Computed example of a mutant assay.
Amino acid sequence: MAIGEAEGRGVEYRGNVAGLLLAAGSGSRLGRPKALVELGGERLVDRGVRTLAEGGCACVMVVLGAADTTVDGAVTVHNPDWSTGMGSSVRTGIDALPDTVDAVLVALADQPLITPEAVRRLVEAFEQGARAAAATYNGNPRNPVLLGREHWSTVYSMAERDVGARPFLRAYSHVVTTVPCDDVASPEDIDTAEDLARLSEVLDRA
């Protein structure tokens, strides 16, 4: 999908790092699309967009699929192949990235404990010269992930079924800058109602 086909409200491209929020899944184990789930009175998709914007992404794009909705402050792109897994959402997002950005920071809507500070650390790594970077927790690379433009085609070719940037991170670990984020974020995700209740309690205590 070309960028002209994407829909956005109040969005202006003005910098080198775009945020890409993957929010296309149906939430089969949760029983509803995760993008629309509310946590602390805020939809996960809106929380993800806010996190990316506050973390320093110049623009934010959201890949939707099972549920289409308007997302303020972001460009939305529909992935018609969302049911095949996250890989197709990564490819849809890369296809839609504007020519004016030099890197993309990929995050998942179902990881609400990712914080603007974690995003900011990756953006700062990019500003200091990193062309690929990943947040790490206990030394393990997880999300979010930052990818310079020169890596997009490789990530695109490796993203399939239910995997996104993970194969790239493993195969090209020698070019990936690791950014510890244990102290400011967590990659815990929401797959079930129990996960939602547990992370709600975590945020209530924060």
Results as ranks from 00 to 15, higher is better:
2 A>L: 13
2 A>Q: 12
3 I>L: 11
4 G>I: 15
5 E>N: 15
6 A>P: 06
17 V>F: 05
19 G>D: 01
20 L>F: 01
23 A>E: 01
24 A>P: 01
26 S>C: 14
34 K>M: 09
39 L>R: 12
39 L>M: 15
40 G>M: 04
48 G>A: 13
49 V>T: 03
50 R>N: 06
55 G>T: 04
57 C>T: 02
58 A>N: 04
61 M>T: 04
68 D>S: 14
70 T>P: 13
71 V>Q: 05
71 V>G: 02
71 V>A: 07
74 A>F: 05
78 H>A: 08
78 H>F: 07
78 H>K: 08
78 H>R: 08
80 P>M: 02
82 W>Q: 03
86 M>I: 12
90 V>M: 06
95 D>H: 03
96 A>H: 02
97 L>Y: 06
97 L>V: 14
98 P>S: 10
105 L>P: 00
109 A>H: 01
111 Q>W: 02
115 T>I: 05
116 P>K: 03
117 E>H: 08
117 E>R: 12
118 A>E: 00
119 V>C: 04
127 E>Y: 06
130 A>V: 07
133 A>D: 04
134 A>R: 07
135 A>C: 14
135 A>F: 04
137 Y>V: 14
141 P>Q: 06
143 N>Q: 14
146 L>A: 03
148 G>A: 14
148 G>P: 02
150 E>A: 13
151 H>M: 13
151 H>V: 13
155 V>R: 00
155 V>G: 01
156 Y>L: 06
159 A>L: 09
160 E>A: 10
168 F>A: 02
169 L>C: 08
170 R>C: 12
173 S>K: 03
176 V>I: 12
176 V>E: 00
179 V>D: 05
181 C>T: 11
187 P>D: 08
187 P>S: 13
188 E>Q: 15
188 E>D: 15
189 D>F: 12
191 D>T: 11
191 D>L: 08
192 T>C: 04
194 E>C: 03
194 E>M: 11
197 A>R: 06
198 R>L: 04
198 R>H: 05
203 L>C: 06
206 A>W: 11
